[in-house]
Computed example of a mutant assay.
Amino acid sequence: MALSTATDAQTLRRDLPVPPLTMRQIAAEADAVLLQYAERFDVAIEAPIEIEDIVGSLMGLRIEFERLEEALGEGVLGALFMRDRRISIDESLDPEIYPDMRWRYHFTLGHELGHWVLHRAFVLSPAIQKLLFGDESLPEIVCRSHGSRPRIERQADQFAGCLLMPEWLLRPAWRRWLGHDDAVCDAEVCESVGDVDLSRFADLLGGDRKLSEMRVRREMFCLPLAKQFAVSDEAMRIQLEQLGLFVARHQPRLF
């Protein structure tokens, strides 16, 4: 495979053809990291997950803030330098400067850690390293906040969700919050959230507007859980959907 331009090289760094993984496999990898952290440091795993400590103390990865968009292009919020054992985060997510971005920062760290855990052996293999020729100061993986989501990015997103919101913590939290284990349907979400000024979310309401409006309402509904787990309401909504705890409508019971 020949790469003709620097743009081609950047695209490859984001679209590496990693092998498929099931959600169960990804969750098992995330659980293994949490178990290792608990055993090594003799701590109980509870929400919110100590993602910075896991990245730094357990995995031995440095976290640095840089102007990634200036260096690597528009929409780049995270990059992983595997050979340097370094995660680079765009300065716009620095929680010391922008406290409101802490939840996005946590997920970005979890996402980059997902690349480290799930993809390190693949990316550092001789065959892939031969493709990633060029300036060795460039990260092996570049992550953008917009555009298509290739498999490698979807897997890292799923890992971050499973690490920061593991099912075995999230389901009990759901039960304590709502008083039951059942999924919540969209009608119940609308009743709970009440009237919403959706004009405030105009930038989110592209494509299927009806579906997008429901996503906004679901995110407003699950905000208390998002705060408990120190993640964004969007990340929490996606994880609850993955676990089947948000449904469009309840299926009729046979008995």
Rank of each mutant, 00 (worst) to 15 (best):
E241F: 05
M23Q: 15
M236V: 13
E52S: 09
R120K: 13
Q25L: 12
D94S: 10
L164S: 00
E213L: 03
P224G: 12
V196E: 07
E69R: 11
D186C: 06
G244W: 07
F229L: 10
I97T: 15
L12K: 08
V184K: 03
S192P: 00
D208K: 05
V123W: 00
M23P: 06
Q25K: 11
A248R: 14
R217Q: 11
R249E: 15
A187F: 12
F133R: 09
P126G: 07
F65A: 09
L245A: 07
L205I: 08
A187T: 13
E219F: 03
S4C: 01
Q10H: 04
I97Y: 12
A44S: 10
L223F: 14
G206F: 04
H250K: 15
M82N: 06
F246C: 04
M220R: 12
I238M: 11
G207K: 01
A9N: 05
R120I: 04
P99L: 09
R149V: 11
G73S: 10
R120S: 13
S57P: 01
R120G: 05
R102K: 14
D208Q: 02
L77E: 03
L138N: 05
S199F: 00
S192L: 08
A202C: 05
S137W: 05
R237Y: 14
L93W: 02
L118K: 00
A47Y: 08
D90T: 07
E69T: 12
A121N: 11
E153K: 06
R215W: 07
D42Y: 10
R13I: 05
V189T: 13
L35Q: 12
R154M: 07
P19S: 10
Q239V: 07
Y98C: 10
A6W: 07
V142Y: 02
W177N: 14
D233E: 14
V189Q: 09
T22F: 09
R151V: 08
F133T: 11
H106G: 04
L72P: 02
G75I: 00
V184G: 01
P99V: 10
A32K: 09
R200V: 03
S232G: 14
D100A: 13
E50G: 06
E46P: 02
F221E: 02
L68R: 03
A38S: 15
A226V: 11
E64P: 03
F221Y: 13
E153V: 05
V189F: 07
R200H: 13
G78I: 00
I87E: 00
R237W: 07
A9P: 00
E46T: 13
